Amino acid sequence: MLNILVTGSNGQLGSEIRELASNYEYKFFFTDRTNIDITDKNDIINFCQTNSINAIINCAAYTAVDRAESDIENADLVNRKAVKKLSLVAKELGIKLVHISTDYVFDGKNYKPYIEEHQTNPQSIYGKSKLDGETEMRNINPLNSIIIRTSWVYSYYGNNFLKTMLRLGKEKESLGVIYDQVGAPTYAKDLAKAILDIIPQISNNKVEIYNYSNEGVLSWYDFAKEIMKMAKLPCKINPIDTFEYPTPAKRPHFSLLNKSKIKSKFNVVIPYWKDGLDDCLKRLGERR
């Protein structure tokens, strides 16, 4: 029996894992900052020993990309220091650790999908803090542990691009959406299922990195267009350049992830992005 600690369990990914939990013969411990302090090594050790934890899925993250530019200390606390503490405990107690990272570790200047070994070069504080967390984990090197990099996460739960588009699509006649940032969205439910399916298979001496997003390639503009189409909203989507929508944090222009490694290693079947969007809209009651 796997006793799995899920940190950050009220976020998009953690909430989707909670919903899928009954499909698996694992015992789950869903936590957030109110019942475990993942920046306190002793607190993590006590929780893991008390509950005989043998796997951790770290969904906790500081994800406010623009706010991170001025809130460097808190981004570092959650995205680096907490990962370091979780890694130390995982190594000490022989616990599997699955940690979630991001496409923002890349600079977005590539012209073909990023493989896991590609040179990292984050362009934002958020991206740097996530890469620093990866580095801490790889240096500590807990056994049977992996990092999953993902992109453009959305879900039935929480706040995300999909929900923003649905809200604005009902309020406005037209919207400008960036067309020159290209990648692929990740439906958190699909990622959650992949994680739960592969956890028993993880066996490695060195921390491995895997990419995961839904299949396909598109821009934010394409994503918004399809949302309006599937939800049958009359809002017109207009393509705009990144420079027309300035933000404190710099985003990668191209961050498509190559998923060959996770598919071949764990026999993961990754759904097409439109299928994930269709499912999420149905759950939200917005599919027309």
Rank of each mutant, 00 (worst) to 15 (best):
S15F: 14
S15N: 14
E16C: 13
I17P: 07
I17F: 03
L20F: 08
A21W: 04
A21G: 03
S22Q: 12
N23A: 10
N23F: 08
K27D: 06
F28M: 09
F30A: 06
D32L: 05
D32E: 09
R33H: 14
R33K: 15
I38W: 00
I38P: 04
T39Q: 13
D43A: 09
D43W: 07
I45H: 05
N46M: 10
F47S: 00
S52D: 15
N54G: 02
A55H: 06
A55C: 14
I56Y: 01
I56S: 03
I56W: 04
C59R: 10
A60C: 07
Y62R: 00
Y62F: 15
A64Y: 11
R67D: 12
E69R: 08
E69N: 11
S70K: 15
E73K: 15
N74W: 07
D76M: 09
L77S: 15
V78M: 12
R80D: 11
R80G: 03
A82E: 05
K84S: 13
K84F: 10
L86E: 03
S87A: 14
V89M: 01
A90V: 07
G94E: 14
K96G: 02
L97C: 01
T102C: 03
T102R: 03
D103Q: 02
F106H: 10
G108N: 10
G108L: 05
K109L: 14
E116M: 10
Q119R: 15
P122W: 01
Q123S: 13
S124V: 07
I125W: 01
I125Y: 05
E134Y: 09
M137G: 00
N139C: 02
I140S: 00
N141V: 02
N141F: 03
L143G: 00
